[in-house]
């Protein structure tokens, strides 16, 4: 690995490959234990962890300022309304750049990334998502200075979506 300033860690290809390899080995170890299958309701999938680590790196997102609104129970996982808002002045120098919406247990964890600008006025987005099963849903906001904020909500899904 090249010399880098101490304390700054940038994900490079090798990190990602190693991470994926480690996850794959972990998956294999898990699959040997039928009771601990990663895709059981409520478990966070390896695909989720890989996506999450790529977004977050070594940072520890702060659990603050983000509100993720979801119903407690979704009867139909094919169409689940969501609403994410983040407290921010949304000025030229201090604004929310991106809001990521992540599923911890869908086949594809990256549901959406909303890119905002100071012209947004408010960091607040709405939409409708698919949920394969009961799980945690995560909203991860990235500020203009690079700081990360996070909120997690648990949702019960009666009939799963995602077409699988």
């Amino acid at each position: 690995m090249q010399n880098r300033p101490i304390g700054i860690h940038i994900l490079d290809r090798r990190d990602v490959v190693l991470g994926t390899l480690a996850s794959a080995l972990f998956a294999k170890a898990l699959s040997a234990l039928p009771a601990a299958a990663a895709t059981e309701a409520g478990q966070r999938s390896l695909a989720f962890w890989n996506t999450f680590r790529l977004l977050v790196g070594e940072a520890a997102p702060e659990e603050a300022l983000v509100t993720l609104k979801l119903d407690e129970i979704a009867e139909n996982g094919n169409n689940v309304p969501f609403e994410i808002s983040v407290e921010s002045p949304m000025s030229e120098t201090d604004y929310i750049k991106t809001i990521h919406l992540l599923s911890t247990s869908n086949p594809q964890p990256a549901v959406a990334a909303f890119h905002l600008t100071p012209a947004s006025g408010k960091a607040h987005v709405k939409g409708r998502m698919r949920l394969a099963r009961t799980q945690d849903v995560i909203a991860l906001a990235e500020k203009s200075d690079g700081k990360l904020l996070i909120a997690t909500r648990r949702i019960e899904v009666t009939i799963g979506g995602c077409g699988n």
Binding site: V80, N106, A110, H115, M129, C162
Partner: peptide, 12 residues
């Protein structure tokens, strides 16, 4: 002024 990247987890 605004954009979004969507995955298969966005509803029809």
């Amino acid at each position: 002024v605004f954009s979004a990247d969507w995955g298969p987890g966005i509803a029809a």
